[in-house]
Every structure is written in C-alpha cells, then in structure tokens.
Amino acid sequence: MGIRTLIVMLVASILLIAYLATRDTYSLFLPGLLQGAVLTAEITVLGCLLAVAMAVLSALGKLYGPAPLRWLANLYIEIFRGTSALVQLFWLFFVLPQFGVSLEPFAVAVLGLGLNIGAYGAECVRGAIQSVARGQWEAATALNMTRLQMLRRIILPQAFVAMIPPWGNLFIELLKSTALVSLITLSDLAFKAQQMNQTTMKTIPIFTLVLLIYLVLSLLITIGMRLLEQRAAKGLARGRTA
C-alpha cells in the first residue's frame, strides 16, 4: 500500500476516534483505553530495542562467531522461533520464579516479546548481510581492511537498507503481541478492553475503539518505517552500481 494511502488511513482513524469521543457510548471508555495504550506503547518501544539488539548480536554470532557462539546463537533463534510467544511469556512468568528468578510483569513483557521478535529479526539481519554483493567484501579486502572495519563501514551500512522493510513487519508483530501481556496481569490496552467489557458488556463500542487505537499505533510504525526506507533507499539508489 502506498504511503499516501497509509497516511489517509491514519488521519481517518484518528478523526474517527475523535468523532466517537463526542458520543456518550464511546467517550466513557476512551480515557481508560488511552491509559492502557500508553503502557502498550512503552512495552512496544522497549521490546523493539531489545529485539534489534538481540537480532544483530545473534546474527553476527551465527555468521562470524567461533563455534560455541554460533551454536548459542542458533539455539536461541530456534527456541524462540519454534515455541509460541505466549508460551515464552508464561514460561518467564510462571516457571522462572520456581528457579528463584522473579521478574516484574513489565520486565517479563519486554524480555519475552523482545527475545521472541529478536529471534525472527536475527534471520532478517543475516539475510540482509548476505545480500550484500561479494565484490564489496573483496574490494574491502583489497584495501586491506580488517574484518571488523569491513563489517562496520562497508557491509552493515548497505545491509541496513535491505533490513528496513522486514523490520517494519516485525515491529508490527511485536506491537500486536503486546496484547498477550494482558494475560500476565499488565493493564495494557487489551487488558483494559477485556476488563471494561466484562463489567459493562458494551462489546461493540469498546472493541471498535480498541481496534482503532491499535490501528493508529501500527500505522505510525508502518509510516515511520516507510519514511526511513525512502530516505535510506535514496542514499543507496544514488549509490547502486550498475
């Protein structure tokens, strides 16, 4: 979908929320839901930061690390991709304390979602690094750079551009997964919705608002990543060799 359409959708959703806020059946719920949305946004941002860090580390470990590190990175990637996000959250929440490690629910949320998406991100980082032409490595070798210099100055800046679209999708996945934290007692957007629904049974107004708020959050991520992609691609399009 084009960036214009996305912006139109964003504006339309915000206007729709603003309009609904003027009506009594809806306005009642909005403040509580927005409170939940703040928590959702916090977990999303911190989770994304953790995911990117884990993805870059494990992709580099898998590609260039010594055998034990490679093995560890693979183990991490397979486990967190192979089991479901909710299972991971429950494991951190219910099982980890039995081993003497009790984390705050908020920490469990950030850790669980960040590690989960990071495992998927690792594959996207790895793919992007491998998509950089072999000639780039060879030219850097001919200029006598060290491997670290090649990676930092030549390979990663080019891989970065290829990584942006898949990361956009992963950030959306992470945002959507934050709804799961409502099941480990955090009062995020999904939790507020569920709670209000139970007390009032006004399903349609509550969930309409909730879906719209999630839509706004995802559109913000999508549009932000598109703009980043356009900027980065401009740099590389100028630079793409024939």
Binding site: A139, A140, A142, N144, M145, I154, Q158, G239
Partner: peptide, 29 residues
C-alpha cells in the same frame, strides 16, 4: 598492504561518494 587491485565490476562502495571511497581505507587502515 603492498598490493592494490582493480576489479572487473568496479566494486565501488555504493553508499559512499567518489571522495569517500578514496579516503575510507587510508583513514581506517
């Protein structure tokens, strides 16, 4: 360090200007 090479497919660094291509290695290496 005594050897330099020019490739069939140029292999310039696409994200760097001509000038940046030429100063990258002298600075870092």
């Amino acid at each position: 360090a005594k050897i330099g090479m020019v490739f069939q497919s140029f292999n310039l660094f696409p994200h760097m200007t001509a000038m940046a291509n030429c100063i990258e290695a002298p600075i870092t290496v």
